[in-house]
Design a protein around this nucleic acid. Structure first.
Lengths: 228, 228
DNA sequence: TTGACTGTAGAACGTTCGTTCTATAGACTG
DNA sequence: CAGTCTATAGAACGAACGTTCTACAGTCAA
Protein backbone atom coordinates (compact mmCIF):
# COMPACT_ATOMS: atom_id res chain seq x y z
CA UNK A 1 0.00 0.00 0.00
CA UNK A 2 2.90 2.33 0.37
CA UNK A 3 2.92 5.38 2.60
CA UNK A 4 -0.51 4.88 4.08
CA UNK A 5 0.01 2.41 6.83
CA UNK A 6 -1.10 1.71 10.35
CA UNK A 7 -4.10 0.00 8.85
CA UNK A 8 -4.50 -3.72 9.41
CA UNK A 9 -0.97 -5.07 9.23
CA UNK A 10 -1.89 -7.92 6.88
CA UNK A 11 -3.19 -5.61 4.16
CA UNK A 12 0.10 -3.74 3.93
CA UNK A 13 3.12 -4.85 1.99
CA UNK A 14 3.47 -5.70 -1.61
CA UNK A 15 0.68 -7.10 -3.73
CA UNK A 16 1.36 -10.70 -4.67
CA UNK A 17 2.21 -11.56 -8.28
CA UNK A 18 -0.84 -12.20 -10.40
CA UNK A 19 -3.07 -9.76 -8.55
CA UNK A 20 -4.22 -7.06 -10.92
CA UNK A 21 -4.67 -3.73 -9.20
CA UNK A 22 -7.62 -1.61 -10.17
CA UNK A 23 -6.45 1.24 -12.38
CA UNK A 24 -9.53 3.41 -12.15
CA UNK A 25 -9.01 6.47 -9.93
CA UNK A 26 -10.32 9.89 -9.30
CA UNK A 27 -6.86 11.35 -8.98
CA UNK A 28 -7.73 14.73 -7.52
CA UNK A 29 -9.79 13.25 -4.75
CA UNK A 30 -7.19 10.64 -3.93
CA UNK A 31 -4.48 13.25 -3.78
CA UNK A 32 -6.39 15.41 -1.35
CA UNK A 33 -7.25 12.46 0.83
CA UNK A 34 -3.64 11.42 1.00
CA UNK A 35 -2.45 14.89 1.99
CA UNK A 36 -4.87 15.01 4.88
CA UNK A 37 -4.01 11.50 5.88
CA UNK A 38 -0.31 12.13 5.89
CA UNK A 39 -0.70 15.25 8.02
CA UNK A 40 -2.66 13.22 10.51
CA UNK A 41 -0.07 10.46 10.38
CA UNK A 42 2.74 12.83 11.18
CA UNK A 43 1.25 13.37 14.59
CA UNK A 44 0.83 9.66 14.98
CA UNK A 45 4.55 9.17 14.61
CA UNK A 46 5.47 11.86 17.12
CA UNK A 47 2.86 11.14 19.75
CA UNK A 48 3.81 7.56 20.61
CA UNK A 49 7.40 8.73 20.86
CA UNK A 50 6.43 11.41 23.33
CA UNK A 51 4.51 8.90 25.39
CA UNK A 52 7.38 6.43 25.43
CA UNK A 53 9.82 9.14 26.48
CA UNK A 54 7.75 10.47 29.32
CA UNK A 55 6.92 6.99 30.58
CA UNK A 56 10.28 5.30 30.32
CA UNK A 57 12.46 8.41 30.60
CA UNK A 58 14.52 7.30 27.63
CA UNK A 59 14.25 7.02 23.87
CA UNK A 60 13.20 3.70 22.38
CA UNK A 61 15.51 1.50 20.36
CA UNK A 62 14.80 0.74 16.70
CA UNK A 63 13.38 -2.63 17.67
CA UNK A 64 11.01 -0.96 20.10
CA UNK A 65 10.05 1.57 17.46
CA UNK A 66 9.06 -1.31 15.18
CA UNK A 67 6.38 -2.23 17.68
CA UNK A 68 5.43 1.36 18.48
CA UNK A 69 4.95 2.28 14.84
CA UNK A 70 3.66 -1.07 13.66
CA UNK A 71 6.52 -1.71 11.27
CA UNK A 72 7.82 -5.13 10.41
CA UNK A 73 11.41 -4.11 9.76
CA UNK A 74 14.02 -1.91 11.29
CA UNK A 75 14.86 -0.42 7.92
CA UNK A 76 11.40 1.16 7.80
CA UNK A 77 12.11 2.62 11.22
CA UNK A 78 15.43 3.85 9.95
CA UNK A 79 13.65 5.65 7.14
CA UNK A 80 11.14 7.27 9.48
CA UNK A 81 13.83 8.26 11.95
CA UNK A 82 15.65 10.01 9.15
CA UNK A 83 12.51 11.98 8.41
CA UNK A 84 12.02 12.93 12.07
CA UNK A 85 15.63 14.03 12.26
CA UNK A 86 15.16 16.18 9.16
CA UNK A 87 12.14 17.78 10.77
CA UNK A 88 14.26 18.50 13.84
CA UNK A 89 12.13 16.48 16.19
CA UNK A 90 15.01 14.26 17.19
CA UNK A 91 18.74 14.13 16.65
CA UNK A 92 21.26 11.35 16.20
CA UNK A 93 24.35 11.39 18.32
CA UNK A 94 27.72 10.05 17.31
CA UNK A 95 26.86 6.41 17.92
CA UNK A 96 23.58 6.47 16.01
CA UNK A 97 21.39 6.55 19.06
CA UNK A 98 18.56 9.03 18.93
CA UNK A 99 18.10 11.88 21.36
CA UNK A 100 14.98 14.02 21.76
CA UNK A 101 15.00 17.61 20.59
CA UNK A 102 11.45 18.89 20.41
CA UNK A 103 9.70 16.11 22.21
CA UNK A 104 9.51 17.18 25.83
CA UNK A 105 6.03 18.44 26.39
CA UNK A 106 5.62 21.85 27.93
CA UNK A 107 2.61 23.93 28.84
CA UNK A 108 1.16 26.03 26.07
CA UNK A 109 1.63 29.73 26.14
CA UNK A 110 -1.49 31.70 25.32
CA UNK A 111 -0.54 35.30 25.91
CA UNK A 112 -2.87 37.85 27.43
CA UNK A 113 -6.30 36.92 28.63
CA UNK A 114 -7.95 38.71 25.76
CA UNK A 115 -6.33 36.38 23.26
CA UNK A 116 -9.00 33.73 23.58
CA UNK A 117 -8.54 30.00 23.59
CA UNK A 118 -7.15 28.15 20.61
CA UNK A 119 -8.94 25.57 18.56
CA UNK A 120 -7.46 22.13 18.07
CA UNK A 121 -5.98 23.22 14.75
CA UNK A 122 -4.17 26.19 16.30
CA UNK A 123 -2.72 24.16 19.15
CA UNK A 124 0.34 23.16 17.15
CA UNK A 125 1.43 26.74 16.65
CA UNK A 126 1.54 27.71 20.30
CA UNK A 127 4.78 28.28 22.10
CA UNK A 128 5.39 25.94 24.98
CA UNK A 129 7.38 26.45 28.11
CA UNK A 130 9.02 24.45 30.84
CA UNK A 131 8.60 25.89 34.31
CA UNK A 132 11.52 24.13 35.89
CA UNK A 133 14.06 25.77 33.62
CA UNK A 134 12.22 29.06 33.67
CA UNK A 135 11.98 29.43 37.42
CA UNK A 136 15.28 27.94 38.56
CA UNK A 137 17.97 28.34 35.93
CA UNK A 138 20.57 28.09 38.70
CA UNK A 139 19.49 25.08 40.69
CA UNK A 140 22.68 24.96 42.69
CA UNK A 141 22.12 28.28 44.41
CA UNK A 142 18.31 28.28 44.55
CA UNK A 143 16.04 27.41 47.43
CA UNK A 144 12.32 27.42 48.01
CA UNK A 145 10.76 29.13 51.00
CA UNK A 146 7.20 29.16 52.19
CA UNK A 147 5.94 32.61 53.08
CA UNK A 148 4.69 33.40 56.56
CA UNK A 149 3.09 36.70 57.45
CA UNK A 150 1.60 39.43 55.31
CA UNK A 151 4.34 42.03 55.37
CA UNK A 152 4.82 41.79 51.59
CA UNK A 153 1.12 41.80 50.76
CA UNK A 154 1.17 44.85 48.53
CA UNK A 155 3.94 43.29 46.47
CA UNK A 156 1.56 40.45 45.66
CA UNK A 157 3.19 37.99 48.04
CA UNK A 158 0.73 36.37 50.40
CA UNK A 159 1.08 33.98 53.32
CA UNK A 160 1.34 30.44 52.00
CA UNK A 161 2.99 31.43 48.74
CA UNK A 162 6.26 29.86 47.76
CA UNK A 163 9.16 32.09 46.88
CA UNK A 164 12.23 30.99 45.01
CA UNK A 165 15.34 32.61 46.38
CA UNK A 166 18.84 32.65 45.09
CA UNK A 167 22.10 33.19 46.94
CA UNK A 168 24.27 35.79 45.29
CA UNK A 169 27.34 37.81 45.96
CA UNK A 170 25.78 41.23 45.88
CA UNK A 171 22.25 42.49 46.19
CA UNK A 172 20.80 45.63 44.69
CA UNK A 173 18.36 48.07 46.29
CA UNK A 174 14.84 47.49 45.03
CA UNK A 175 15.09 43.71 45.12
CA UNK A 176 13.08 41.64 47.54
CA UNK A 177 15.56 39.89 49.77
CA UNK A 178 15.74 37.41 52.60
CA UNK A 179 17.81 39.00 55.34
CA UNK A 180 19.03 38.09 58.76
CA UNK A 181 18.50 41.25 60.77
CA UNK A 182 19.21 41.46 64.47
CA UNK A 183 19.09 37.68 64.71
CA UNK A 184 15.90 37.05 62.78
CA UNK A 185 15.12 36.07 59.21
CA UNK A 186 12.72 38.25 57.27
CA UNK A 187 11.63 38.98 53.71
CA UNK A 188 11.49 42.62 52.68
CA UNK A 189 12.39 45.12 50.00
CA UNK A 190 16.02 46.12 50.16
CA UNK A 191 16.36 49.91 50.21
CA UNK A 192 19.22 52.32 50.48
CA UNK A 193 19.28 55.80 51.91
CA UNK A 194 22.61 57.47 51.48
CA UNK A 195 25.09 54.82 52.53
CA UNK A 196 22.75 52.97 54.83
CA UNK A 197 20.81 49.91 53.75
CA UNK A 198 17.47 49.17 55.35
CA UNK A 199 14.47 46.92 54.83
CA UNK A 200 11.02 48.05 53.80
CA UNK A 201 7.83 45.96 53.98
CA UNK A 202 5.13 46.14 51.30
CA UNK A 203 2.32 46.70 53.75
CA UNK A 204 1.37 50.07 55.16
CA UNK A 205 0.71 48.53 58.56
CA UNK A 206 4.43 47.77 58.99
CA UNK A 207 7.32 50.17 59.21
CA UNK A 208 10.76 50.08 57.62
CA UNK A 209 13.45 48.27 59.55
CA UNK A 210 16.80 49.90 60.12
CA UNK A 211 19.41 47.40 61.23
CA UNK A 212 20.93 47.96 64.63
CA UNK A 213 23.64 45.38 65.08
CA UNK A 214 23.91 42.47 62.71
CA UNK A 215 22.56 42.70 59.20
CA UNK A 216 23.17 40.06 56.60
CA UNK A 217 21.38 39.43 53.34
CA UNK A 218 21.05 35.73 52.72
CA UNK A 219 19.31 35.58 49.37
CA UNK A 220 17.26 37.48 46.79
CA UNK A 221 13.75 36.53 45.75
CA UNK A 222 13.73 35.61 42.06
CA UNK A 223 10.21 34.29 41.70
CA UNK A 224 6.88 33.77 43.42
CA UNK A 225 4.71 30.70 42.97
CA UNK A 226 1.22 30.19 44.26
CA UNK A 227 -0.91 27.15 43.72
CA UNK A 228 -4.63 27.03 44.43
CA UNK B 1 44.54 0.48 45.63
CA UNK B 2 41.08 -0.82 46.01
CA UNK B 3 38.09 1.34 46.76
CA UNK B 4 39.93 4.62 46.81
CA UNK B 5 40.17 5.56 43.23
CA UNK B 6 39.85 8.54 40.96
CA UNK B 7 43.47 9.27 41.71
CA UNK B 8 45.96 9.16 38.87
CA UNK B 9 44.85 6.25 36.72
CA UNK B 10 48.32 4.76 36.44
CA UNK B 11 48.68 4.27 40.18
CA UNK B 12 45.55 2.19 40.44
CA UNK B 13 45.31 -1.49 39.80
CA UNK B 14 47.15 -4.33 41.30
CA UNK B 15 50.66 -4.08 42.67
CA UNK B 16 53.11 -5.98 40.51
CA UNK B 17 54.62 -9.24 41.82
CA UNK B 18 57.72 -8.65 43.92
CA UNK B 19 56.57 -5.32 45.32
CA UNK B 20 56.37 -5.56 49.07
CA UNK B 21 53.66 -3.38 50.54
CA UNK B 22 54.35 -1.49 53.73
CA UNK B 23 52.56 -3.25 56.60
CA UNK B 24 52.83 -0.43 59.14
CA UNK B 25 49.49 1.35 59.72
CA UNK B 26 47.60 3.37 62.21
CA UNK B 27 44.44 1.41 61.67
CA UNK B 28 41.97 3.64 63.45
CA UNK B 29 43.03 6.71 61.62
CA UNK B 30 43.00 4.95 58.29
CA UNK B 31 39.54 3.60 58.91
CA UNK B 32 38.12 7.03 59.68
CA UNK B 33 39.81 8.51 56.66
CA UNK B 34 38.34 5.86 54.42
CA UNK B 35 34.82 6.34 55.70
CA UNK B 36 34.95 10.06 55.02
CA UNK B 37 36.50 9.46 51.66
CA UNK B 38 33.88 6.96 50.62
CA UNK B 39 31.06 9.29 51.62
CA UNK B 40 32.60 11.97 49.52
CA UNK B 41 33.05 9.50 46.68
CA UNK B 42 29.40 8.57 46.69
CA UNK B 43 28.53 12.02 45.53
CA UNK B 44 31.21 11.80 42.91
CA UNK B 45 29.50 8.82 41.39
CA UNK B 46 26.07 10.42 41.27
CA UNK B 47 27.10 13.87 40.13
CA UNK B 48 28.69 12.99 36.79
CA UNK B 49 25.63 10.86 36.05
CA UNK B 50 23.37 13.81 36.71
CA UNK B 51 25.44 15.98 34.45
CA UNK B 52 25.43 13.45 31.63
CA UNK B 53 21.69 13.02 31.90
CA UNK B 54 20.88 16.69 31.80
CA UNK B 55 23.30 17.36 28.97
CA UNK B 56 22.59 14.42 26.71
CA UNK B 57 19.01 13.77 27.79
CA UNK B 58 19.72 10.07 28.11
CA UNK B 59 21.55 7.67 30.40
CA UNK B 60 25.11 6.69 29.49
CA UNK B 61 26.08 3.21 28.38
CA UNK B 62 28.48 1.11 30.43
CA UNK B 63 31.29 2.00 28.09
CA UNK B 64 30.57 5.68 28.58
CA UNK B 65 30.41 5.17 32.33
CA UNK B 66 33.92 3.72 32.18
CA UNK B 67 35.17 7.08 31.01
CA UNK B 68 32.89 9.07 33.28
CA UNK B 69 33.97 7.19 36.38
CA UNK B 70 37.55 6.57 35.33
CA UNK B 71 37.27 2.81 35.31
CA UNK B 72 39.24 0.55 33.03
CA UNK B 73 36.65 -2.21 32.75
CA UNK B 74 32.94 -2.54 32.32
CA UNK B 75 32.75 -5.06 35.14
CA UNK B 76 33.75 -2.34 37.58
CA UNK B 77 30.94 -0.23 36.17
CA UNK B 78 28.61 -3.17 36.58
CA UNK B 79 29.55 -3.38 40.23
CA UNK B 80 28.94 0.34 40.81
CA UNK B 81 25.67 0.28 38.89
CA UNK B 82 24.48 -2.49 41.16
CA UNK B 83 25.25 -0.34 44.15
CA UNK B 84 23.42 2.66 42.68
CA UNK B 85 20.43 0.47 41.93
CA UNK B 86 20.42 -0.80 45.53
CA UNK B 87 20.42 2.78 46.75
CA UNK B 88 17.46 3.48 44.50
CA UNK B 89 19.22 6.12 42.46
CA UNK B 90 18.66 4.26 39.22
CA UNK B 91 16.77 1.22 38.03
CA UNK B 92 17.39 -1.46 35.46
CA UNK B 93 14.69 -2.21 32.95
CA UNK B 94 14.06 -5.57 31.34
CA UNK B 95 16.91 -5.35 28.85
CA UNK B 96 19.54 -4.30 31.39
CA UNK B 97 19.57 -0.68 30.38
CA UNK B 98 19.55 1.78 33.22
CA UNK B 99 16.86 4.36 33.81
CA UNK B 100 17.04 7.31 36.19
CA UNK B 101 14.98 7.29 39.37
CA UNK B 102 16.29 9.94 41.72
CA UNK B 103 18.60 11.73 39.40
CA UNK B 104 16.62 14.62 38.01
CA UNK B 105 17.71 17.60 39.98
CA UNK B 106 15.05 19.64 41.71
CA UNK B 107 15.17 22.81 43.74
CA UNK B 108 15.68 22.40 47.44
CA UNK B 109 12.79 22.97 49.74
CA UNK B 110 13.63 25.02 52.78
CA UNK B 111 10.31 25.61 54.51
CA UNK B 112 9.46 28.84 56.22
CA UNK B 113 11.80 31.77 56.18
CA UNK B 114 12.64 31.33 59.82
CA UNK B 115 14.23 27.97 59.15
CA UNK B 116 17.56 29.45 58.18
CA UNK B 117 19.83 28.33 55.43
CA UNK B 118 21.40 24.90 55.44
CA UNK B 119 25.08 24.16 55.64
CA UNK B 120 26.74 22.00 53.03
CA UNK B 121 26.36 18.96 55.28
CA UNK B 122 22.60 19.44 55.66
CA UNK B 123 22.01 19.91 51.93
CA UNK B 124 21.63 16.20 51.31
CA UNK B 125 18.67 15.92 53.64
CA UNK B 126 16.53 18.57 52.00
CA UNK B 127 13.45 17.68 50.03
CA UNK B 128 13.58 18.70 46.41
CA UNK B 129 10.81 19.58 44.06
CA UNK B 130 10.16 19.84 40.35
CA UNK B 131 8.08 22.84 39.34
CA UNK B 132 6.91 21.49 36.05
CA UNK B 133 5.10 18.55 37.59
CA UNK B 134 3.94 20.62 40.51
CA UNK B 135 2.38 23.44 38.52
CA UNK B 136 0.97 21.57 35.53
CA UNK B 137 0.06 18.00 36.41
CA UNK B 138 -2.42 18.01 33.53
CA UNK B 139 -0.44 19.42 30.63
CA UNK B 140 -3.11 18.54 28.10
CA UNK B 141 -5.71 20.89 29.53
CA UNK B 142 -3.43 23.61 30.89
CA UNK B 143 -2.53 26.94 29.37
CA UNK B 144 -0.48 29.91 30.43
CA UNK B 145 -1.85 33.44 30.35
CA UNK B 146 -0.15 36.73 31.00
CA UNK B 147 -2.09 39.01 33.29
CA UNK B 148 -3.21 42.45 32.12
CA UNK B 149 -4.86 44.92 34.45
CA UNK B 150 -5.00 45.14 38.21
CA UNK B 151 -8.51 43.90 38.90
CA UNK B 152 -7.19 40.94 40.91
CA UNK B 153 -4.62 42.95 42.83
CA UNK B 154 -5.92 42.10 46.29
CA UNK B 155 -5.74 38.41 45.45
CA UNK B 156 -2.01 38.84 44.94
CA UNK B 157 -2.22 38.75 41.14
CA UNK B 158 -0.48 41.68 39.51
CA UNK B 159 -0.16 42.87 35.93
CA UNK B 160 2.62 40.94 34.22
CA UNK B 161 2.18 37.82 36.32
CA UNK B 162 1.64 34.52 34.59
CA UNK B 163 -1.35 32.44 35.54
CA UNK B 164 -1.76 28.78 34.78
CA UNK B 165 -5.31 27.95 33.85
CA UNK B 166 -6.99 24.64 33.35
CA UNK B 167 -10.07 23.78 31.32
CA UNK B 168 -12.57 21.78 33.34
CA UNK B 169 -16.12 20.58 33.12
CA UNK B 170 -17.49 22.41 36.10
CA UNK B 171 -16.30 25.37 38.10
CA UNK B 172 -17.01 26.11 41.73
CA UNK B 173 -17.79 29.47 43.32
CA UNK B 174 -14.75 30.89 45.07
CA UNK B 175 -12.34 29.88 42.33
CA UNK B 176 -10.60 32.43 40.18
CA UNK B 177 -11.78 31.82 36.63
CA UNK B 178 -11.25 33.04 33.11
CA UNK B 179 -14.65 33.85 31.69
CA UNK B 180 -16.08 35.13 28.47
CA UNK B 181 -18.71 37.58 29.58
CA UNK B 182 -20.73 39.68 27.13
CA UNK B 183 -18.14 39.03 24.45
CA UNK B 184 -14.99 39.78 26.45
CA UNK B 185 -12.48 37.66 28.31
CA UNK B 186 -11.77 38.52 31.91
CA UNK B 187 -10.24 37.01 35.04
CA UNK B 188 -12.27 37.29 38.24
CA UNK B 189 -13.53 35.41 41.26
CA UNK B 190 -16.52 33.25 40.47
CA UNK B 191 -19.35 33.96 42.93
CA UNK B 192 -22.89 32.71 43.30
CA UNK B 193 -25.88 34.48 44.76
CA UNK B 194 -28.93 32.28 44.92
CA UNK B 195 -29.00 30.66 41.51
CA UNK B 196 -27.15 33.39 39.71
CA UNK B 197 -23.43 33.28 39.02
CA UNK B 198 -21.48 36.49 38.78
CA UNK B 199 -17.90 37.69 38.71
CA UNK B 200 -16.18 39.65 41.43
CA UNK B 201 -12.84 41.47 41.10
CA UNK B 202 -10.29 41.53 43.93
CA UNK B 203 -9.89 45.28 43.87
CA UNK B 204 -12.20 47.68 45.64
CA UNK B 205 -12.00 50.12 42.73
CA UNK B 206 -13.92 47.67 40.53
CA UNK B 207 -17.44 46.41 40.90
CA UNK B 208 -18.88 42.90 40.53
CA UNK B 209 -20.02 41.94 37.06
CA UNK B 210 -23.41 40.39 36.53
CA UNK B 211 -23.72 38.72 33.14
CA UNK B 212 -26.33 40.11 30.81
CA UNK B 213 -26.39 37.93 27.75
CA UNK B 214 -23.61 35.44 27.12
CA UNK B 215 -21.60 34.07 29.99
CA UNK B 216 -19.15 31.25 29.57
CA UNK B 217 -16.37 30.13 31.86
CA UNK B 218 -13.38 29.05 29.86
CA UNK B 219 -10.93 27.93 32.52
CA UNK B 220 -10.01 28.04 36.19
CA UNK B 221 -6.80 29.53 37.53
CA UNK B 222 -4.74 26.83 39.20
CA UNK B 223 -1.53 28.69 39.88
CA UNK B 224 0.21 32.05 39.73
CA UNK B 225 3.83 32.53 38.75
CA UNK B 226 5.82 35.71 38.93
CA UNK B 227 9.44 36.12 38.01
CA UNK B 228 11.54 39.14 38.90
C1' DT C 1 2.23 5.70 -20.49
C1' DT C 2 6.58 6.37 -18.74
C1' DG C 3 9.93 7.47 -15.37
C1' DA C 4 11.12 9.29 -10.96
C1' DC C 5 10.05 9.28 -6.17
C1' DT C 6 8.28 7.51 -1.70
C1' DG C 7 7.69 4.19 1.82
C1' DT C 8 8.07 -0.48 3.47
C1' DA C 9 9.90 -5.50 3.60
C1' DG C 10 13.60 -8.48 4.22
C1' DA C 11 18.24 -10.12 4.99
C1' DA C 12 23.01 -9.69 6.18
C1' DC C 13 26.66 -7.19 8.69
C1' DG C 14 29.81 -5.28 11.98
C1' DT C 15 29.54 -2.88 16.31
C1' DT C 16 28.26 -2.08 20.89
C1' DC C 17 25.66 -3.59 24.61
C1' DG C 18 25.35 -5.56 29.45
C1' DT C 19 26.62 -10.00 31.74
C1' DT C 20 29.49 -13.21 33.83
C1' DC C 21 33.54 -15.57 35.46
C1' DT C 22 38.15 -15.51 37.34
C1' DA C 23 41.93 -13.20 39.67
C1' DT C 24 43.84 -10.08 42.89
C1' DA C 25 45.22 -5.94 45.90
C1' DG C 26 43.98 -3.63 49.83
C1' DA C 27 41.00 -2.95 53.92
C1' DC C 28 38.95 -4.94 57.72
C1' DT C 29 37.96 -8.42 61.61
C1' DG C 30 39.04 -11.18 65.38
C1' DC D 1 48.51 -13.38 61.56
C1' DA D 2 44.94 -15.69 58.88
C1' DG D 3 40.57 -15.26 56.94
C1' DT D 4 36.92 -12.43 54.95
C1' DC D 5 35.12 -8.59 52.48
C1' DT D 6 35.27 -4.89 49.06
C1' DA D 7 36.37 -2.91 44.79
C1' DT D 8 38.62 -3.24 40.57
C1' DA D 9 40.97 -5.52 36.29
C1' DG D 10 40.61 -8.38 32.45
C1' DA D 11 38.73 -11.54 29.06
C1' DA D 12 35.09 -13.95 26.72
C1' DC D 13 30.20 -14.21 25.32
C1' DG D 14 25.60 -13.97 23.35
C1' DA D 15 22.11 -10.62 22.57
C1' DA D 16 20.68 -6.33 20.84
C1' DC D 17 21.92 -2.40 18.35
C1' DG D 18 21.82 0.71 14.13
C1' DT D 19 23.34 0.47 9.19
C1' DT D 20 23.13 -0.80 4.59
C1' DC D 21 21.74 -2.97 0.38
C1' DT D 22 18.27 -4.99 -2.62
C1' DA D 23 13.54 -5.41 -4.15
C1' DC D 24 9.11 -3.74 -5.09
C1' DA D 25 4.26 -1.64 -4.77
C1' DG D 26 2.11 2.61 -4.98
C1' DT D 27 2.05 7.57 -5.88
C1' DC D 28 3.04 11.48 -8.50
C1' DA D 29 4.32 14.53 -12.42
C1' DA D 30 4.97 15.23 -17.21
Amino acid sequence: MGPIRNSTPKSSGRVGAGVISNGIHNYERTKARRRAYRKKMQGEFDEPLRRFLSEKKRMPSFAELMEIWNYRTKSAVHYRIQELADRGVIRKDGTGRIVPLRLEKGTRLLGVVEAGFPSAAEEELLDVMNFDEFLTPNKESSYILKVKGDSMKDAGIQPGDMVIVERKNNYKPGQIVIAMIDGEYTMKYLRKRGEQHYLEPANSRYKPIFPKESFKIEAAVTAVVRKY
